[in-house]
């Protein structure tokens, strides 16, 4: 089996997904037995043009240039992975879709005439995505799992079920039952219930679980005393554009 030729790309994002990849630390050298880095600007001067066996794309698409680039990358990649929430759902960037673009620009720049950004979109608004690896950031070992699975030619095993599964198996007290506005019941697992393990409510950074019952959760949050504005903020954070949360995130 030859090595996987990989490309790692960054669109509108914070680089955190790439950093989560680099979190392999000493295992990096082992990982390099499996992959050839053909394109990864953060790590290497080599700027290969592919074709890539595997393209890992971080970030959402938010400028006219990026639309062209993602299409180009797609055409040169066998398997394209949406790495992280920005790529999968639009991520935190997408919060601005709910504001007028002029208003957003004026809040940041005195002279916004030269700004050229568009509505924030996830990758699959423009191209086909083969694997979605959500999370803000996705867990390091899950990224490695996906790379192995692509090398083996098998579909990756990524959970669709909610955080509650991992949380219960960690024997945490249910924060929602304790009256805190946890998002766990509607958010995809994969983090190992990281936040509830530390006593923090799930903030939703892995995006919606499959078939989430957001309506029921909203009822709970209202019981707890969350305002409608806070509720919208919660659902509009990491995955407001997802089909699962769109209905409630305020458009």
């Amino acid at each position: 089996m030859g090595k996987l030729r990989i490309g790692v790309f960054k669109f509108t994002s914070c680089s955190g997904c790439q950093l989560s990849m680099l979190r392999v630390n000493e295992q990096l050298l082992n990982l390099l037995n499996l992959i050839d880095i053909d394109y990864w600007v953060m790590v290497s001067d080599v700027k290969g043009k592919g074709p890539y066996d595997l393209a890992l794309v971080e970030g959402s698409v938010s400028t006219p240039e990026e639309i062209g680039e993602i299409k180009e990358i797609r055409s040169r990649s066998r398997i394209l992975v949406a790495l992280g929430d920005c790529a999968t759902y639009g991520g935190l960037n997408s919060i601005r879709n709910y504001m007028s673009q002029r208003e957003v620009e004026k809040l940041v720049y005195e002279n916004p005439t030269s700004i050229r950004s568009t509505t924030v979109r996830p990758l699959d608004y423009y191209v086909d995505v083969d694997i979605y690896l959500s999370g803000c950031p996705p867990d390091t070992s899950t990224i490695v799992e996906v790379i192995k699975d692509v090398a083996l030619g098998v579909p990756p095993r990524l959970p669709k079920y909610p955080v509650c599964v991992e949380c219960k198996l960690s024997e945490n007290e249910c924060l929602l039952i304790k009256g805190e506005p946890c998002m766990g019941p509607v958010i995809k697992a994969g983090c190992g219930a990281l936040c509830p393990n530390l006593g923090r409510i799930c903030e939703g950074c892995y995006g919606p679980a499959v078939d989430p019952n957001a309506e029921s959760l909203l009822d709970k949050w209202r019981e707890i005393g969350l305002s409608e504005r806070e509720i919208v903020c919660k659902l509009r954070k990491y995955a407001g554009l997802s089909k699962e949360f769109k209905r409630w995130s305020g458009l």
């Binding site: 669109f11 509108t12 994002s13 914070c14 970030g59 938010s62 400028t63 990026e66 935190l92 960037n93 919060i95 601005r96 504001m99 208003e103 957003v104 620009e105 809040l107 940041v108 700004i115 950004s117 504005r229 806070e230 903020c233």
Partner: peptide, 13 residues
């Protein structure tokens, strides 16, 4: 690409 972090903060708790 600009991310307008300061703008998206406005209106958040």
């Amino acid at each position: 690409a600009p991310r307008f972090i300061e703008a998206i903060l406005v209106g958040r708790p």
